[in-house]
Nucleic acid binder design. Structure first.
Lengths: 331, 331
DNA sequence: TTGTACGCGTTATCAT
DNA sequence: ATGATAACGCGTACAA
């Protein structure tokens, strides 16, 4: 594979000149630039990334570590990050931590080893292997969930408030045994959604019983079982707040199996809008989170921190929108 | 940041010994290994990736360039690739070409520059910037679609046959003006699905009219417009074969708007199973593609090629399963 | 088994 | 404006 020396030889200049000509850093004679360009072109020269990164002590790459590539919420974030990063010449590598602290840790190590310029991540748990990033001075930004003991840049959604509003909406629609299916304890968004739900019930002077609440993985299967359990109780809920769209699928499956009609029999609001939400009958009411925007904001924050590591950490909290559709209306 | 020399100094050995001890390549004294490990641990030593890759002339990384991170079909492939790659210590970086030849080309350049061990990609179009990979001797495998003029490893689904079977199924159900909404001309899967559809019609001696066919982006919006057009014609189709699940969303939207009932009024079969397919009314019949398996097979093929670049290129064709549900049954 | 020393390809410093 | 050269951090051939 052609190296910078080959290009230099072919253009009849030194490697230093080739480097300068190709990177446009310093000023180089017009003719020489042309000659170098031509030689590089002819040889199909592609700079050696590792060598360049070794020399520069940093790669124009940001790592994005998300907890689930198959969750549209996170892929939408990825889009946002990519669009901003590409604009300024950074590449984005996507890593799938699978909601698994060990994998997350592994990817953080890789990010450090590869000397990426920065890391954006949705922290998977309580343990923060992120401390390694901090201690090495690698820029990072948390999205969706704050980092336990870390004082870092973070982009969140006011999910507690959104959960409260959604629950209040269900109350207003006349549901009075409202349940909640949320994610695992310790996952901040899951806890917050539960807290917002409880707050709303309290404000409405509704009873709040642990029998109306289930926690499970943020996946369809767990939510399906949870819904089955909840609805087979002697005094089943007449409405459910569901913490994400994969879970909503599970709940809708359970309702089908139990022949319970959404909306009429059991009011439903789920977090995360999905393309199919309007296609089910009745259409699913959702809390739409600004996922793409989370990505763009996080990327800009990261770039700012890469440029100036002394910036004071900021917390950006974005709002979510409740989209009322048929599944949360009684008739 | 701690370097190998720091570790060597702390352990009181040479850098060569540290390298050997940490990589376990050559045989090193037990005590020394322990001492080196301890020193590395204490210093929080992480090897410098660029330096290592520069020296090794290759990174234990494979690039996966897919045409749409938001398409579950491709993210499932990604899962498959990841699982296999991780098993043997390779990292996977995911790149989103957005069905855009230019972005694809850019990511290929990056992959070359970073000297990744191999590339797996779903080629976006006719132009094959992939030739660059070939000419540089970088291993690569195509998934979902073959590479135009390239004789490479490729993992496909027999999508023409699947389309034919799905169409034949619609014929068997008594539909007799069957239409097709497929992807852009030139995209192999889109062409193949159309070909299979036509084949089935021909075999059934059904008329096949261009008025029953629309081509558009593999996205919901385009399919929605296409369905609107098709169904507003004087002699509209009474069934549709839809080339992917995002398009299915668009078609179902159009049907809602036109107050046309799936199944009864218009039979429907769509490519790609989705978690929500069973939740719509009636449940959506689909052609389920073995996406995860495509990923695992492609990854194994790539690893084999990395190990032995002289292997003869192979083509693996996987089958798809037609899942008959309510949307393709008349009553 | 361990250490010394070179080279991977680039960029940046220092002369010219 | 251009060229010679050192240095980035690692792995390994060779020597001991």
């Amino acid at each position: 594979m052609a190296t910078i020396s080959d290009v230099a030889a072919r253009a009849g200049v030194s490697t230093a000149t080739v480097s300068r000509a190709l990177n446009g850093k310093s000023t180089v004679d017009r003719d020489l630039v042309a000659r170098v360009r031509k030689a590089a072109e002819e040889l199909g020269y592609q700079p050696n990334g590792p060598a360049r990164n070794l020399r520069r002590q940093e790669a124009a790459v940001v790592a994005l570590i998300i907890s689930d590539v198959e969750n549209p919420f996170f892929t939408a974030i990825a889009r946002g990050v990519e669009d901003v990063a590409h604009e300024v010449g950074y590449s984005v590598v996507l890593c799938n931590s699978d909601e698994n602290a060990e994998k997350e840790n592994r990817y953080i190590d890789i990010a450090i080893q590869e000397r990426v310029a920065g890391v954006i991540l949705s922290p998977s748990g309580t343990t923060s292997s992120v401390a390694k990033l901090a201690s090495r001075g690698t820029a990072y930004v948390a999205v969706d969930r704050p980092l336990p003991g870390q004082d870092s840049d973070v982009v969140l959604v006011d999910t507690r408030l959104a959960a409260k509003q959604a629950t209040t909406h269900l109350v207003a629609q006349g549901y009075d045994r409202i349940g909640c299916i949320t994610g695992p304890a310790g996952v901040r968004t899951a806890d917050d959604r539960l807290a917002g739900y409880r707050e709303a019930l309290k404000a409405a002077k509704h009873r709040s019983s642990p029998r109306l609440v289930r926690r499970t993985e943020y996946k369809a299967a767990g939510a399906r079982r949870a819904a089955q359990e909840l609805l087979r109780q002697p005094e089943p809920p007449d409405a459910l707040l569901i913490a994400n769209s994969a879970m909503a699928v599970g709940v809708l499956q359970a309702l089908q199996e139990l022949k319970i009609r959404p909306g009429r029999d059991v009011g439903l609001v789920a977090f995360d809008d999905a393309p199919w939400a309007e296609l089910v009958d009745p259409p699913l009411s959702v809390v739409a989170q600004p996922a793409y925007e989370i990505g763009t904001v996080a990327a800009r924050l990261l770039l700012a921190r890469i440029a100036d590591s002394t910036r004071a950490p900021t917390t950006t909290t974005l709002g979510a929108r409740l989209l009322e559709r048929g599944s949360s209306h009684r008739k």
